[in-house]
Amino acid sequence: MSINDNILIKIRDMKHSLTPVEKLVAEYVLENLEEIPHLSIKNLAQQAKTSDASVLRFCKTMGYTGYRSFIVSISASLGSMEEETRDQYTDIQPGDELPVIISNISRNNIKSIEDTLSVINKNEIARAVKMLRQSNRIAFFGIGASGLVGIDAEQKFSRINKMCHTYTDGHSQLTAATLLEKGDVAIFISNSGNTIEILDALDIAKKNGACIIAITKYNKSGLADRANIVLSISTPEVTIRSGAMGSRIAMLTVIDILFAGVASAEYKSVKKYLTKTHNIIASKQRK
């Protein structure tokens, strides 16, 4: 179950990776939200120009056991519609004044985190924390902005004496994946979930028995399909102007959650490492 379940965000993020028939249902739902709670499955199928079975399949794709639970979730999400409309993502515009930029970027980052809480599954987080605690070593894989998230993760987990490293280019990723074994954890970070280099390394790591954790956008993708554990994020990149700002913030938040989960669960044993690393850095800052 998601931490702050919001079906509207799930449909928005998943829409472009649905089958053509499921996409018809998704588009009709998003365009006619107010009437959806009052429609039977047959009525919705007729309005979306599809079948009852297709509507039910769409509901299951979105993570619901049936049509009734889907409708209940829609009704609950409608309550936050006014706030959602007021707080949309804002792209970079030519000539924006600095105060506008400060406000827009701050709101975008806040919304990225809030929307991620609507799609990330707390049970998957618990499974990921458990695997990280049991791991012999941890390998982070990411390219571009996702690679920067991996570097941040390595810095954090190194502080609690976890054997880990980040690989940010295709060749080193293939080499690292080849050397992974059962008992190791490989965390693949990719917003799209379809980066070729990431998928190539994933296939090798999985074949070697490593546990695969994916941090990726909430949609259907090669990465989400092949991972053992999927930690979803929600951050639409508005256009090419905004780059990977939203996804980076969301991914960094997921890394922070995993780190805090492991550190909290093992606090008695890792406290000494946190203290040592804090003290050595603090001593250098005083000089």
Results as ranks from 00 to 15, higher is better:
Glu84Pro: 05
Ala76Tyr: 04
Ser73Gln: 11
Ser73Ala: 15
Asp96Met: 15
Met62Val: 03
Gly66Met: 02
Phe70Pro: 00
Val72Arg: 08
Val72Tyr: 10
Lys60Ile: 03
Glu83Tyr: 14
Ser73Lys: 10
Val100Lys: 12
Asp96Pro: 01
Glu84Lys: 14
Phe70Arg: 00
Ser103Tyr: 07
Pro94Leu: 10
Glu82Gly: 07
Cys59Arg: 00
Ser73Gly: 06
Ile101Thr: 09
Glu83His: 14
Thr85His: 08
Pro94Val: 10
Asn104His: 14
Asp96Gly: 04
Gln93Gly: 04
Ser77His: 06
Asp91Ser: 07
Met62Trp: 01
Ile74Asn: 02
Ile71Asn: 00
Ser80Ile: 05
Phe70Leu: 01
Thr85Leu: 15
Ile102Cys: 14
Thr61Met: 05
Lys60Gly: 03
Ser75Pro: 07
Gln88Asn: 07
Lys60Arg: 15
Arg68Gln: 14
Tyr67Ala: 02
Thr65Ser: 13
Tyr64Ala: 05
Thr65Cys: 03
Met62Arg: 02
Glu84Val: 12
Ser69Lys: 11
Thr61Arg: 10
Tyr67Asn: 01
Asn104Lys: 11
Cys59Trp: 01
Met62Phe: 02
Glu97Gly: 03
Pro94Asn: 09
Thr90Ser: 11
Met81Gln: 15
Gly95Cys: 06
Arg86Met: 12
Ser75His: 13
Ser73Trp: 10
Pro94Ile: 12
Leu78Val: 12
Arg86His: 11
Gln88Ala: 13
Gln88Gly: 06
Pro99Ile: 11
Gly95Gln: 11
Thr85Trp: 05
Phe70Asn: 00
Arg68Met: 09
Gly95Arg: 11
Val72Trp: 06
Leu78Met: 14
Ile74Cys: 06
Val72Phe: 08
Ile74Ala: 03
Arg68Ala: 10
Tyr67Gln: 01
Ile71Tyr: 00
Glu82Thr: 12
Met62Thr: 02
Gly79Glu: 14
Glu84Phe: 14
Gly95Phe: 11
Ala76Leu: 11
Thr90Asn: 07
Glu82Pro: 03
Ser103Val: 04
Ile102Asp: 12
Asp96Lys: 07
Glu82Cys: 06
Pro99Lys: 05
Lys60Val: 04
Ser77Ile: 05
Met81Arg: 15
Met62His: 01
Tyr89Trp: 05
Asp87Asn: 15
Glu83Val: 09
Thr65Phe: 01
Glu82His: 13
Ser80Ala: 11
Cys59Tyr: 02
Gly79His: 10
Thr65Tyr: 03
Lys60Glu: 05
Asn104Leu: 06
Asp96Asn: 08
Glu82Val: 12
Leu78Phe: 12
Ser75Tyr: 14
Gly66Ile: 01
Thr61Leu: 05
Tyr64Met: 08
Tyr64His: 14
Met62Pro: 02
Arg86Trp: 03
Ile92Gly: 00
Phe70Val: 01
Ser103Glu: 10
Ser103Leu: 05
Val100Glu: 12
Val100Pro: 04
Glu97Ala: 13
Gln88Asp: 06
Thr61Phe: 01
Leu78Glu: 12
Phe70Cys: 00
Gln88Thr: 13
Asp87Glu: 13
Asp91Cys: 02
Tyr67Pro: 00
Lys60Thr: 04
Asp87Ile: 08
Ile71His: 00
Met62Gln: 04
Ile101Ser: 03
Tyr64Trp: 09
Ser80Asn: 13
Pro99Thr: 10
Glu82Lys: 12
Ile74Asp: 04
Thr65Ala: 12
Val100Gly: 08
Val72Ala: 06
Pro99Val: 09
Phe70His: 00
Tyr89His: 05
Arg86Ile: 04
Asn104Gly: 03
